Computed example of a mutant assay.
Amino acid sequence: MQEAPRSGPGSPRSLRQANRKRVLAALADGEVLSQADLARATGLAASTVSALVRELADAGDVLFERRGSGRSSQLIRLSTPPGLVVGLDHGRRHLAAAVAGMDGEILADARMRISDELPATESMVELSALLDRVLAAAGRSRAEVHRGALALPAPVDISSGRLGSTEILPRWGGIEPAALAQDVLGFPVSVHNDTNVGAVGEARLGAGRGVSHFAYIWVSEGLGAGLILNDTLYAGISGIAGELGHTLQRAETGALCRCGNRGCLETVVSTPAVLALLEPQLGRLASFDEVLERIASGDPLCRRVLAQTGRHIGVAVTNLVNLINPQRVIVGGELSSAGEVLLEPIRQMVSQYAIPSAAERVEIVLSELGKRSEVLGAAKVALTEHRVQRMNAEFVDA
Rank of each mutant, 00 (worst) to 15 (best):
R311T: 11
L383D: 00
M124K: 00
E126Y: 00
Q327W: 00
I240L: 11
L227A: 04
G236P: 05
S159M: 07
L343D: 02
E243N: 09
L118N: 02
T253Y: 14
V291G: 00
L277Q: 15
A137C: 01
T309R: 04
I168M: 12
V211R: 13
Q182F: 09
R361W: 01
G186W: 14
P12S: 06
E394Q: 14
D109P: 00
H246E: 00
L282R: 09
R171Q: 15
M124F: 00
P119N: 05
V125Q: 14
S238L: 05
V197S: 04
V191Q: 03
A129T: 12
L15A: 15
E105I: 07
V350G: 04
Y216L: 11
A241E: 08
F288L: 02
E243V: 05
G91K: 02
A136E: 14
R294I: 01
V197Y: 11
C257N: 07
P170A: 05
L205D: 02
S123D: 06
E334P: 04
P119K: 02
T271W: 11
M102W: 03
R250W: 13
T247H: 13
A207H: 12
E368W: 08
A398Q: 11
G104L: 05
I295T: 06
E243Y: 06
S357D: 09
V381T: 13
E122G: 02
E122Q: 13
A41V: 01
R390V: 12
V305Q: 10
P345F: 13
A39G: 13
H90N: 08
L56R: 01
V375I: 02
R22A: 15
A136R: 14
E202D: 03
D61S: 10
S337M: 11
P326H: 08
R54L: 10
C264Y: 01
N322Y: 08
N193F: 03
H312N: 11
S367W: 13
Q389H: 14
A241G: 14
G174R: 08
A143V: 10
A379C: 04
A151V: 04
F288S: 01
P356F: 14
S123W: 01
K380C: 15
V86C: 11
A382P: 10
E252M: 13
L335Y: 12
Y353V: 00
H90D: 04
F64E: 06
T48N: 06
S220M: 04
V62H: 01
G210E: 03
L24K: 12
V317P: 00
E117C: 07
A354M: 02
G8Q: 04
R147K: 10
